[in-house]
Structures are given as structure tokens and as C-alpha cells.
């Protein structure tokens, strides 16, 4: 093989699709993918089952607004969210993304979940696609600190485990919250980044955002050990350095 062909083989930039919820993990996975390859689309499964094993549900309707803020096309795919059958829906969504965008691989925000990552790996293997998990096995506290250091603004939109309480709902992840989560990890064994389903998040801004999200109206719903920060109205706002900002609003 001559040197030109060797270099071409290693220089090829892949077209990728990111499994996307608008939460911190899928957004940060997208960020890392954009640094290395070409992200052609975001793929969002909208589950009708709030207890879905695979797919994030709180404020999933805002994923489109986050995608718009980043400036990447989003493919939305509905699923009844029935365990295992939703994998067929995911497979169909990926096939459609390949047809529309020519993607060669899938990116996920999986960190620890062998359940989630194995199933997506199998789908990719069957479809002869690459599969990337750029947050895999990352230290969760280091990861939260990294999010802030890279300029992401992340709020908590759901808490689903004791002792996470109403005070977390709508709060931004900052150094103080990370310290609190670290303490709760030591005392109660919660996963600080919510990998065990303890909490869900929404990203409002970050280095890959052309525009940022502004929450205009939201309600805190808390009962027992579970709570949701339901965003009723949000819009995109301009960012310095990013012209071409039309205001879009979702109510």
C-alpha cells in the first residue's frame, strides 16, 4: 500500500449520528464526537413510557430546541417504550438516519450502563455501523467538573431517588452542587452523575451551542422521592460571537 493510500485511510472523517436527549451525557458525547468526526444528525427517541429502560423522558420535547441551539438536524422517532420492543424502534430510527444522512456510526452518552451500551452495540453490529461511547467508564465526579470547565450550563430536570429533593429541581450544576452530590455519593451511594437514574438534566448552553436556551416558565412537581422540573416555555437566545440568531420559541 503506498503512503498516499495509508494517509487517506487514516484521514477519513466519519459521518455520525448521536443518540440525543438534550441531557448532559448526550450533549457532551456530541461535543466530543464533533471534535473528532462529523456529526450529521441527532437521533431522539420519544418514549411514551415514562419508565423507559433505554430512553430519557423528562422534557424530551425540548431536545429539538437544544438541537436547534447547537445547529444540527434532529431525527425524532416515537416509541411506545415497551422493553426490548423499543430496541426495534431504535433500530428503525438508526436505519432512517443512515438513509437520510449517510451516517457510518452511532454515538451514545453511556457511562456505566452495560445494559444500555450492549444493546446499542448489538444494533450497530447488526447494521454494520461503528459505535462510539466517548464517556464510557469516566469518573463521574471528574466528568461533572469537566462539564463546567468546558463551559456547559446544565440544569437538573428530574430527581428520582432519596435523598435528592425539590431543591435540586431547576438548579444549575455548579461546584456547590458537585460537592453536595459527592457527599451524597459517600453517604447514600447515589451515582453523582445520575447514571443509576437518580437524576436527569437539560443543557442550556455550551461551547458547541450557537444559541443558548432560556427557560421562561417552569413548574416544580415533587412527590415522595420523585420530582420533575417541567419546562412549560423556553426559547433560544443570541450568544455573542454567533450572529444569525433568529428567536425561536416553544410553549
Amino acid at each position: 500500500m503506498n503512503i498516499f493510500l495509508i494517509n487517506a485511510r487514516f484521514a477519513h472523517i466519519m459521518n455520525l449520528g448521536v443518540l440525543f436527549s438534550g441531557g448532559k451525557d448526550s450533549v457532551f458525547a456530541c461535543y466530543r464526537a464533533m471534535e473528532k468526526e462529523d456529526v450529521k444528525c441527532l437521533i431522539t427517541l420519544i418514549s411514551e413510557n415514562e419508565e423507559s429502560y433505554m430512553f430519557h423522558t423528562p422534557n424530551i420535547g425540548l431536545a429539538e430546541l437544544v438541537a436547534s441551539a447547537i445547529g444540527i438536524d434532529i431525527l425524532k422517532w416515537r416509541t411506545p417504550g415497551v422493553e426490548e420492543m423499543e430496541l426495534e424502534d431504535l433500530r428503525d430510527a438508526i436505519i432512517e438516519a443512515r438513509r437520510l444522512y449517510g451516517i457510518e456510526g452511532i454515538v451514545t452518552g453511556a457511562i456505566e450502563s452495560v445494559y444500555q451500551s450492549s444493546r446499542i452495540q448489538r444494533i450497530c453490529s447488526e447494521l454494520d455501523l461503528w459505535c462510539f461511547n466517548p464517556l464510557w467508564q469516566i469518573d463521574q465526579l471528574d466528568y461533572l467538573k469537566m462539564l463546567i470547565a468546558h463551559g456547559f450550563r446544565v440544569i437538573v430536570t428530574g430527581v428520582f431517588a432519596y435523598p435528592l429533593d425539590e431543591s435540586f429541581l431547576g438548579a444549575e450544576i455548579d461546584d456547590g452542587m458537585i460537592a453536595k452530590l459527592e457527599m451524597l455519593q459517600k453517604r447514600y451511594g447515589i451515582s453523582p452523575s445520575g447514571e443509576g437514574g437518580e437524576l436527569e438534566t437539560l443543557v442550556l448552553d455550551g461551547p458547541i451551542f450557537r444559541r443558548r436556551l432560556e427557560v421562561l416558565r417552569a413548574a416544580r412537581l415533587f412527590s415522595g422521592n420523585r420530582g420533575r422540573y417541567v419546562i412549560e416555555s423556553a426559547r433560544l437566545a443570541e450568544k455573542p460571537g454567533h450572529p444569525n440568531n433568529r428567536v425561536a420559541q416553544r410553549s
Binding site: 487514516f10 466530543r32 462510539f132 466517548p134 464517556l135 464510557w136 469516566i138
Partner: peptide
Amino acid sequence: CYRAGSLSRYEFVEPVAA
């Protein structure tokens, strides 16, 4: 992995190194 500094490094190299 397929390229130095690739997207796969986060998944297959960094966790082992850590």
C-alpha cells in the same frame, strides 16, 4: 484504535489507563 487521538480512545484507552 483506528487513528491517533480518535473518538474511540475515550472508550478503549482512557478507562484502562485510569
